[in-house]
Design a binder for these strands. Structure first.
Length: 156
DNA sequence: GCCAACGTTGGC
DNA sequence: GCCAACGTTGGC
């Protein structure tokens, strides 16, 4: 079992949106970064736990817990000319972009803002809090995952 | 809205 | 295969 942090802009797709989806499950489409794709394609396993992070919002932070709900498969939005994520270089016979389904797992009692994550000792090495980190999918350690979950389960 | 960081593109 | 230009991310 591995642990991940996945960023999403809540204006585009929030944790609440995931919860409202059919089966509370949604394909994590639109990833157009090779490192992030490789994590989904090569390393994610069904049941892996995910910190669902809200980026580009005030304040940024972890909104809830999700899990990996499928094996990797081609990102179909790359083949759709009408999609914002259309990529003519992705050949359906040899897809460039792969994704997994992500499923709602659990609510936190409260949102864990980035400012607070920065103060959690277990999280001092997290890629998330390092400068210039733009990668939208990063592995997290069990200790990091548990520390953030614990913070989110504590009443404010 | 600014801007630092960083990934990608494309000319050479 | 180098690297400048460009586009995007995302915190502030």
């Amino acid at each position: 079992m591995q642990y991940w942090l996945m960023k999403s802009e809540p204006d585009v797709f929030s944790f609440g949106d995931l919860k409202a989806c059919k089966n509370q499950t949604e394909p994590w489409d639109g990833i157009r970064n090779y490192q992030a794709r490789n994590f989904m394609r090569d390393d994610m396993k069904i049941g892996d736990q995910i910190l669902f992070y809200h980026s580009n919002t005030k304040p940024p932070g972890v909104a809830g817990i999700a899990e990996v709900a499928s094996k990797p498969y081609p990102d179909f939005t790359a083949f759709d000319k009408k999609s914002n994520y259309y990529d003519p270089k992705s050949d359906p016979d040899n897809p460039r972009w792969m994704l997994v389904d992500v499923k709602f797992k659990a609510d936190l009692k409260r949102y864990v803002p980035l400012d607070e994550i920065k103060t959690i000792p277990e999280c001092s090495e997290m890629r998330l809090i390092q400068r210039g980190n733009r990668l939208s999918i990063t592995p997290v350690t069990k200790a990091e995952f548990q520390a953030i979950k614990k913070a989110g389960m504590r009443k404010s």
